[in-house]
Design a protein around this nucleic acid. Structure first.
Length: 887
RNA sequence: AGGCAGUUAGCUCAGGUGGAAGAGCAUUUCUCUUACAAAGAAAAGGUCGCAGGUUCAAAUCCUGCACUGCCUACCA
C-alpha cells in the first residue's frame, strides 16, 4: 500500500475472486428476497454508455440490499433481438457470400444466425463483468433457449385458447426493407420537409372540380372516396356526388365524415383505405372498398402499366409530373410533417393490408392500469405514471407476428389434406406438431410461417427466467417473483415494461415488480444524444481503461437523477477518479498509522473523548441515514453526492487533519483511541460506498480486515446512535469558522505557510463565556489547522500594535504580524468589510422598520433578525475602532 | 395539437414543508506542510429564463409567456 495512486489492477483481481467464489450466486433462503431481472441486452449489442448506466444503477441497488441482508438476486441474460439480429446477419451474408437469406433457405439461415450469436453473445456479458455487475452467473438466460422457448409457447397457447390471439387481415405498419409487419410502437416518427399537393378531381356531370390537398399523390390510385366534414357548408351540396380520379378516371363518391378537419388544406380528403390508418377507419365506418396499390416490397401494384413496379418515391414523382401535364395539379405548397420510420432500419414505414396475428390486450391493459392506480406499482420518478396509464388506456391490439425467420416461430399448426392443401379446419396452437386433427383426422400439418415479435418473449422475461415455461409452481418462481424493481430508460417503457406488467398479471395473477425506476438518457456535453452517426459516442470501455471502473461508476451514479437526462463529459470522470484516489490516500494514512500501533481491535469503537470525535460521529450518523434513505428511494445521485461530501469535506478535510494532533502523540493509548474512531468511520463509509465503487472499497476493506468477510458479504456496521451529539455540530462550526477566518487573513496578508503566528482572543463585555469556553477547550484545533503557535485569552483590551484583526460575534482575534502586516492593505481590507456589513445593516434595518413585518412575521423570525442586526452593528463598531487605531 | 420535464456561477448540477444564494469542474493567488500536487489553503464569479400575482417575506407557491428537451396523437 505504498503507491500514491490507487492501483487499477485490483479491479480484475476482485472480479475474478467474486466469480471463483460465486459471491453473487443465490439460492432462496429465509431472508427476504430482493430481485432484479436485467433488461436483456441484444445479442448483437456491445456495451454503450446507456447500458453502463442502466446496469451500474441495478448493481448499486442490488449491492446495497445485499449489505442490508436481503436474499438478493440479479438475473443476467440476453435477448435474441429479432429484426435487429436478422438484419445484421443478412448484411453479413450479403457481404461475405453475396447471398440473401432466401438463397440459403429458412433452416440454413437460422443455423447461420445461431452460429453467429454464440460467437458474439459472450462479449456483452463479459463487458458487464468488467463493469463489476453482481449478476448471478449461474442463471444466464437467453430469450430463445429451451426454457424460455417453452415459456413463449405456453403463453401463446394459453392466450390462443382463451381466444385472445386471433388472425386477421388488417392495416398494419409495414417495413418494406425488413419485409415485415411492425407493431404501432415500433414505428418512430420524424419530421420531414415535404410538399402538400393540391389536386383537382373532376366532378361527374359537371365542369367543376373539387380540390384536395395531399402529401401522398401517388396513392390516388387507391382512392375509394373523397371525404368532407358534414358540417362544412362549402361542400354540403357535393356530398353524394361522384368524381373521377385523375389519371385513371375511376369514379368515386364524395362522402362526409366528422373526422375531417375543415381548416386543413381544402377541407377535402382523398380516402385511401389500404395505405392510411385514418382512411382505413373512414372506410370501415362508411363501408368503402379497399384497393391495395403498394406491395410488401414498397412497389406499386394494381396501377396503370407505366406506374407498375415503381417504388413509392418514383411513383410520386411521375404522378405529380403527369398531373401537371393533365392540368389537374392546382398548386404545390411546402409542408413539414412527421413520417413513420422503422425503428430498426429507419426506412419509411408503409401502412398496408396484411394477414397478421393480433393479441387482444384490452383486459390486460385494464388490469395493468388498476395495479398502478391502486399503488401496487410505484414509478420513480412519479411523473411517468400518467403517460404510462394514458398509453395503456388507449392501446390497440398488438400485432405480434413478424415475417422474419429469426425468432420464436408461431406455434400454430394447420392441417393439410393428402394433396398437401390446407384444409378449412380450425388451426391448433400446440407445443409440438399435433398427431391428428380433431376434425378431419388428417395426420399432416404445416406450421405457421411467421415468428413472434421479439417483445413477446421479452414480456415474459420476469417469469421465464424462473422457468415458468417448465413448471409454473416451482419454488424459485414463488420465492423471487414478483421482483423488487425494474430499472430502465424510458425509451422501452411501452415496448417492454408495460407488456411485462400485462403478462405478469395475466399469467401470474400478480404484477412483476413493485417499483419502476426510470433513469434518463446520457447526452454529450452539448446536450446531444449519443449516436454513431453524430460521432459523439463515448465508449465506456475506454473510460474504464482511462479512469478506472470505479470512477466511471461513481460519475454515472452522481449524474443519475431519476428520470432526468444527463450530460456527461471527461471532466465528470476526472473528478470521480480524483475522488477514488482520495479514498485510497486517506485509507493509506489510516492504515500506515494502524501499522505503527500494531493490532487494533477494530470491532470496538472507543468512546469519543473530544469535540472532533463527537462531531464526526454526529455528522456520520446524519450522513449514513441520508445515504441509506437515498439508496432505498432510488435517489442514487443524492447518495453519491452525500458520500462525496461527507468523506472528502468532513472526514478528510477536518477529522483526519485534526486526528493528526493525537496521531503524533507518544501515547499509544491516545493514538489507539483516535484510530478506533477513524477506522470505524472508514469501515462504515466504505460499506456505504461499496455499492457504487465496489473495487477500491473491497481492496481497502481487505487490507483493514485480513481475516474478515469480504465487504460484499459483510453486514452494515451498526451505527452508534448513543454517540450522537447535536451540540457538537454548533461547537465545531465555531471552531471551523475561526480557523477559516484566520486562514483567509493569512492568505490575504501573504503570510508564508511555514510561519506560525500568535493569536490573541479578546472577549468583549461579559456574557460570552460559552463561546470562549469552547475555544479554550479546543485551542489545539486552531493551532493545528490555522498555523497558530500560541493562543492567549484576554478581556477588553485594545488592539496591540502591528496586528490584524478578525471579529467573530463578540470576540476579537488579534494576530500580531510584526514585519508582515501591511498597514495599507489591512486598512483596505477593513474598509471593504465595513462597506459590506453596512449594506447588510441597511437591508435588515429596512426589514425591521416594516410595520407589517413586525405585525405578521413569527416572533422567532423577528428575534433572529434583530440579533443579526446587533451583531452587524457591533462588528462595524469594532472594525471602526481598529481602523482608528491604525491611523 | 396535447401532455410531461427543464431553465440557478463560464460549464455540469444541488437547493423537503417560503425567512441572509450552494457544490464540483474551469479561472486566479499561494503551498511539493510528515495520506493525497489526481493534493492542500484561499480568492473571484449569480437581478436564480421573462412578466405578473399571493405574502410582512418568493429561487422556492400561483398564473401567463419565452426558449430547450422528451413523450403521445387519426397533421390528409
Amino acid at each position: 500500500m505504498e503507491k500514491k495512486f490507487y492501483p487499477k489492477k485490483i479491479e480484475e483481481k476482485w472480479y475474478k475472486y467474486w466469480l471463483e467464489n460465486k459471491t453473487f450466486s443465490t439460492k432462496p433462503n429465509n431472508n427476504k428476497p430482493f430481485t432484479i431481472v436485467i433488461p436483456p441486452p441484444n445479442v448483437t449489442g456491445h456495451l454503450h454508455m446507456g447500458h453502463a448506466l442502466n446496469n451500474i444503477l441495478q448493481d448499486i441497488i442490488i449491492r446495497f440490499r445485499k449489505l442490508q441482508g436481503y436474499n438478493t438476486l440479479w438475473v443476467p441474460g440476453t435477448d435474441h433481438g429479432g429484426i435487429a439480429t436478422q438484419n445484421i446477419v443478412e448484411k453479413l451474408l450479403k457481404k461475405e457470400e453475396g447471398k440473401t437469406r432466401y438463397d440459403l433457405g429458412r433452416e440454413k439461415f437460422l443455423q447461420k444466425v445461431l452460429k453467429w450469436r454464440t460467437k458474439t453473445s459472450g462479449a456483452i456479458l463479459d463487458q458487464l463483468k468488467k463493469l463489476g455487475c453482481s449478476l448471478d452467473w449461474d442463471r444466464v438466460a437467453f430469450t430463445m433457449d429451451e426454457s424460455r422457448s417453452k415459456a413463449v409457447k405456453k403463453a401463446f397457447i394459453k392466450l390462443f385458447n382463451k381466444g385472445l390471439i386471433y388472425r386477421g387481415k388488417r392495416l398494419v405498419n409495414w417495413c418494406p426493407r425488413c419485409v415485415t409487419a411492425l407493431s404501432d410502437i415500433e414505428v418512430e416518427y420524424e419530421y420531414e420537409k415535404s410538399n402538400l399537393w393540391y389536386i383537382k378531381y373532376p366532378i361527374i356531370n359537371s365542369k367543376e372540380y373539387i380540390v384536395i390537398a395531399t402529401t401522398r399523390p401517388e396513392t390516388i390510385f387507391g382512392d375509394t372516396a373523397l371525404a368532407v366534414n358534414p358540417k362544412d357548408a362549402r361542400y354540403t351540396s357535393l356530398v353524394g356526388k361522384s368524381v373521377k380520379i385523375p389519371l385513371i378516371d375511376r369514379e368515386i363518391k364524395i362522402i362526409s365524415d366528422s373526422i375531417i378537419d375543415k381548416s386543413f388544406g381544402t377541407g377535402v380528403v382523398k380516402v385511401t383505405p389500404a395505405h392510411d390508418i385514418t382512411d382505413n377507419e373512414i372506410a370501415r365506418r362508411n363501408k368503402l372498398e379497399i384497393i391495395e396499390i403498394i406491395d410488401t416490397n414498397g412497389k406499386m401494384i394494381n396501377v396503370p402499366y407505366i406506374y407498375q413496379g415503381l417504388n413509392v418515391e418514383e411513383a410520386r414523382k411521375k404522378v405529380v409530373e403527369d398531373l401537371g401535364v393533365e392540368n389537374l395539379l392546382l398548386k404545390i405548397d411546402n409542408y413539414t410533417h412527421s413520417v413513420g420510420k422503422c425503428y430498426r432500419c429507419s426506412i419509411k414505414v408503409e401502412p398496408l393490408m396484411s394477414e397478421q396475428w393480433f393479441l387482444n390486450v384490452r383486459d390486460m391493459s385494464k388490469r395493468a392500469v388498476e395495479a398502478t392506480n391502486s399503488e401496487k406499482i410505484f414509478f420513480h420518478p412519479q411523473s411517468w405514471k400518467k403517460p404510462y396509464i394514458l398509453w395503456l388506456e388507449n392501446l390497440r391490439d398488438w400485432c405480434i407476428s413478424r415475417q422474419i425467420w429469426w425468432g420464436h416461430r408461431i406455434p400454430v399448426y394447420y392441417c393439410v389434406d393428402e394433396k398437401g392443401k390446407q384444409t378449412n379446419c380450425k388451426p391448433i396452437a400446440a407445443f409440438d406438431k399435433p398427431k391428428e386433427c380433431h376434425y378431419c383426422k388428417s395426420k399432416s400439418f404445416i406450421q405457421d410461417e411467421d415468428v413472434l415479435d421479439t417483445w413477446f418473449s421479452s414480456a415474459l422475461w420476469p417469469i421465464s427466467v424462473f422457468n415458468w415455461g417448465e413448471d409454473e409452481n416451482n419454488k424459485e418462481l414463488k420465492h423471487f417473483y414478483p421482483t423488487s424493481v425494474l430499472v430502465t430508460g424510458h425509451e422501452i417503457l411501452y415496448l417492454w415494461v408495460a407488456r411485462m406488467v400485462q403478462f405478469g398479471i395475466e399469467f401470474m395473477k400478480e404484477i412483476p415488480y413493485n417499483n419502476i425506476f426510470i433513469h434518463g438518457i446520457i447526452r454529450d456535453r452539448h446536450g446531444k444524444k449519443m449516436s454513431k452517426s453524430l460521432g459523439n459516442v463515448v465508449d465506456p470501455l475506454k473510460i474504464m481503461d482511462q479512469y478506472g471502473t470505479d470512477a466511471l461508476r461513481f460519475a454515472l451514479a452522481q449524474a443519475a437523477a431519476p428520470g432526468r437526462d444527463m450530460q456527461i463529459s471527461n471532466t465528470s470522470f476526472l473528478a470521480a477518479r480524483n475522488f477514488i484516489n482520495k479514498i485510497w490516500n486517506a485509507s493509506r494514512f489510516i492504515i500506515l498509522n494502524l501499522k505503527e500501533v500494531g493490532k487494533l481491535d477494530n470491532t470496538i469503537i472507543q468512546q469519543p473523548i473530544e469535540l472532533s470525535d463527537e462531531w464526526i460521529m454526529t455528522e456520520f450518523i446524519n450522513s449514513a441515514a441520508k445515504i441509506k434513505k437515498d439508496y432505498e428511494s432510488y435517489n442514487i445521485d443524492n447518495a453519491a453526492r452525500e458520500i462525496y461530501d461527507f468523506f472528502w469535506k468532513k472526514y478528510c478535510d477536518w477529522y483526519i487533519e485534526l486526528s493528526k494532533i493525537r496521531m503524533i502523540s507518544t501515547s499509544l493509548n491516545i493514538k489507539k483511541q483516535v484510530l478506533s474512531i477513524l477506522v470505524y468511520i472508514l469501515k462504515s463509509i466504505l460499506q456505504l460506498m461499496s455499492p457504487v465503487i465496489p473495487f477500491i472499497t473491497s481492496e481497502i476493506w481487505q487490507i483493514l480486515n485480513k481475516n474478515e468477510k469480504i465487504i460484499v458479504e459483510s453486514s452494515l456496521l451498526t451505527v452508534p446512535e448513543n454517540f450522537y451529539n447535536e451540540s457538537s455540530i454548533e461547537k465545531m462550526n465555531t471552531i471551523k469558522d475561526i480557523i477559516m477566518k484566520i486562514r483567509t487573513l493569512r492568505s490575504e496578508m501573504n503570510i508564508p505557510s511555514t510561519m506560525q503566528t500568535e493569536a490573541l482572543f479578546n472577549t468583549l463585555g461579559n456574557n460570552n463565556n460559552n463561546k470562549i469556553e469552547i475555544i479554550r477547550e479546543n485551542e489545539n484545533y486552531i493551532k493545528q489547522l490555522a498555523k497558530v503557535k500560541s493562543i492567549q485569552f484576554c478581556k477588553n483590551i485594545t488592539k496591540p500594535k502591528n496586528s490584524a484583526v478578525i471579529i467573530i460575534g463578540d470576540i476579537e482575534i488579534f494576530l500580531p504580524l510584526e514585519g508582515f502586516i501591511d498597514i495599507v492593505k489591512e486598512k483596505i481590507r477593513l474598509i471593504k468589510e465595513i462597506t459590506f456589513i453596512n449594506q447588510e445593516i441597511e437591508k435588515i434595518t429596512l426589514k425591521l422598520s416594516n410595520e407589517n413585518f413586525i405585525k405578521k412575521a413569527p416572533k422567532t423570525e423577528i428575534e433572529k433578525t434583530k440579533i443579526r442586526l446587533n451583531k452587524a452593528k457591533l462588528k462595524v463598531k469594532k472594525i471602526n475602532e481598529n481602523l482608528n487605531f491604525l491611523k
